[in-house]
Amino acid sequence: MMLSMLYGVGIAFFGFVLHTSVAGINRKISGRLQKRYGPKWYQEFLDIFKLLSKRATSHGWIFDFGVIMALGGIIATAMFIPVTNNFLAFPDFDNFFIFAYLIAVGMLGMAMSASGSGNPLASIGVMRALTTMLAYDIPYMVVIVTIIKLTGTSSISGLALYQQAAGNNWFIVALPLGAIVAVLALMAGLGKKPFETYIAPAEIASGPLVEYGGKQLGMLFIMMEITHFIEVSLFVNLFLGGAENIFIFLVKYFAVYTALSLISNVYARFKIDQVVLFFYKWPLLIAIVQGFIAIYLGWVI
């Protein structure tokens, strides 16, 4: 058990390094799109280590405790991620619902810490983040329910193996409508435009992050990178057939994240009620239609 735990911590660390690099490269790509030179690919590492080394202010014990709980919860969640068919810490125990709900501990920690700072902008940011979550998670979950019902397993690595088996397509092909919903939900989950209402730097001063600096901000950045790693890896495993080896995983991971970054570059920001209305109008409808035709009519490509 202890060995698996260490293995899991290794995966979390791998996820941090991987996502920070991929995000750095994407900053460069965005820069080139906007005819800038862009920062170096390892700029995000420099930012985080600089922040960790600086002296910061704290608004009381809950402010600090929330940060620890946030990072701890996210590391725990990342430990369960299956990277490839063999690179995973807990075979059979990588239940989808563990990711869906354990990730919430980290989110709750961050929200609690932000509200504990006493800044109303932070509370508004948290309110918007939770509202966005209520919007995008329902359609996404309906798609996942469809997948679990079709395959009979909720283990992420099990689902990846199912897609790799001969005769089965990746779910991005097998359930095309569901895949559209999942892409939209993933964009909202990653806080990409047009769904980045809860960060909104010029409007509510980065929302939940407004009061942070120094090591607290650095730890929250680490937490964000690992959160993004979890969300993108889940997409790769659920819809793109997982990965037989680490090389395929890296390619798929980079492709997904870069594609989403490119899409988000051309959008402006939604208002928060527009986010809710948007997700409850089309994606929820599409997800339910996909569920009906896949489960009751058996139309799976």
Partner: peptide
């Protein structure tokens, strides 16, 4: 384990100023 790791990172770094 996650919380312990986060706590170690937190405690090893410079102490914050209380405001």
């Amino acid at each position: 384990i996650g919380v312990v790791i986060a706590f170690i990172i937190f405690i090893l770094l410079k102490k914050s100023k209380q405001v």
